[in-house]
Simulated scan of single mutants.
Amino acid sequence: GLSMADVTATVSDCANHLAIDQFQVLGFSGGGPYALACAQTMPDRVTAAHIVSSLGPVDIPEIWSALRRQDHLLFTLAHRSPRLFSLLLRLSMWGVRQNPERFIAQL
């Protein structure tokens, strides 16, 4: 439920608390837009933004047609039923915490 502004403010607060003047950010998957937001809002502090397997603009037909069926279902669910999508995401993350080795092997 955090906004981009909430996340960038939290990152800035953490860096301030740790006395880190400049740093790099890493955005994996859905974290990509947040890493880019940090780079945009803190250009004097963020020296690089690394984006790995991140989200892109899925409203472009060529990108939408290139997505896997599973991704179509997830994006549709997120759009039509954010609460159900959130529950599914929490359950998935629970599974990752229960067996992180399996998650890493699947990556």
Rank of each mutant, 00 (worst) to 15 (best):
Q22C: 12
G95S: 08
A19C: 03
E62T: 12
H50K: 04
L77W: 01
V96E: 04
Q22M: 08
A37V: 01
R80K: 13
G30C: 09
I20F: 10
P57S: 09
D59C: 02
L77S: 07
I51N: 05
D6I: 03
D59Q: 11
L77T: 07
G31Y: 01
T47R: 11
Q22T: 15
D44N: 13
L36K: 08
N16V: 03
A15M: 12
I20Y: 09
V52S: 06
C38M: 02
P82C: 04
L18W: 14
R80L: 11
M42S: 07
D21H: 13
S29V: 05
G56M: 06
R102I: 08
S12G: 09
L67K: 00
L89E: 14
S29E: 04
S92Y: 14
D71K: 10
P57D: 12
S3C: 01
V46A: 02
A15D: 00
P33M: 04
R69M: 11
D13K: 07
R69I: 13
A78P: 06
L73R: 13
D13Y: 03
L91A: 05
P57M: 10
M42Q: 15
L36S: 05
T47S: 05
H17M: 08
I20E: 10
Q40S: 08
L36Y: 07
L67I: 08
T8W: 00
C14N: 06
H79G: 07
G95E: 10
L74T: 11
F23C: 01
Q70R: 11
L2C: 14
G1R: 04
A15P: 01
V25Y: 00
D59K: 02
F103Y: 15
S86Q: 13
T76R: 08
G32M: 03
L74N: 14
R90T: 15
V25I: 09
S12M: 02
H50R: 01
Q98G: 04
A49G: 07
V46C: 03
V46P: 00
I20D: 07
G32Y: 05
Y34H: 05
P33D: 03
L67Y: 01
T76E: 14
S29I: 01
G30E: 09
I60N: 08
T8Y: 06
I104N: 06
V52C: 05
S3W: 07
L2H: 15
Q106M: 13
M4N: 12
F85K: 05
P57E: 13
L87V: 10
Q24W: 11
Q40V: 06
A66R: 06
A19V: 07
P43K: 09
L55N: 03
R45V: 05
R97K: 12
S53L: 10
L73W: 11
A37Q: 02
P82T: 03
F28A: 10
S81Y: 06
A105L: 09
A39E: 03
F28K: 06
C14R: 13
E62S: 15
R97C: 11
P43E: 14
Q24K: 08
S3N: 04
A39H: 00
L88N: 06
A49Y: 05
Q22W: 02
T76P: 01
F23I: 05
L26H: 03
R69V: 14
C14S: 12
S54Q: 03
F103D: 12
Q106N: 13
H79P: 00
R83N: 06
S65N: 12
